[in-house]
């Protein structure tokens, strides 16, 4: 699978990933070579084979639903880059449509 610069820029937008000019120069070729490497999988017969999502069975044991102390709001917010009144603040998402 060859990846063009345009296709890579589309992927980067989907992934919300800013790329430098230098990265835009080298990444399409590198990613194409990675996708070439994985082509070999096509030759494996996987008819009627179930996919493995987790390698070991026996996990997912349910525990009792107990009420335990949880993180204080102050601690949970402590690492947020922009905190106001107990909320994470981000740039405005919805434009104001009318002035009140």
């Amino acid at each position: 699978m060859e990846l063009s610069l345009k296709e890579m820029e589309e992927l980067a937008l989907i992934a919300r990933l800013y790329l430098t000019e230098e990265e835009k120069k080298i990444l399409p070729q590198q990613i194409s070579s990675i996708l070439d490497m994985v082509h070999s999988l096509e030759t494996v017969d996987t008819e009627d084979v179930e996919p493995t999502i987790y390698p070991i069975t026996g996990s997912g044991v349910l525990r009792e639903d107990e009420i335990l102390p949880s993180l204080a709001v102050k601690d949970a917010l402590a690492n947020g880059p922009d905190i106001v009144d107990g909320y994470f603040r981000v740039p405005r998402i919805i434009e104001e449509e009318y002035e009140s």
Partner: peptide
């Protein structure tokens, strides 16, 4: 083609 295929090959390896 890619992701589920890789998970199926993972089963073959197991």
């Amino acid at each position: 083609t890619y992701f589920v295929k890789a998970q199926k090959v993972r089963t073959k390896i197991r």
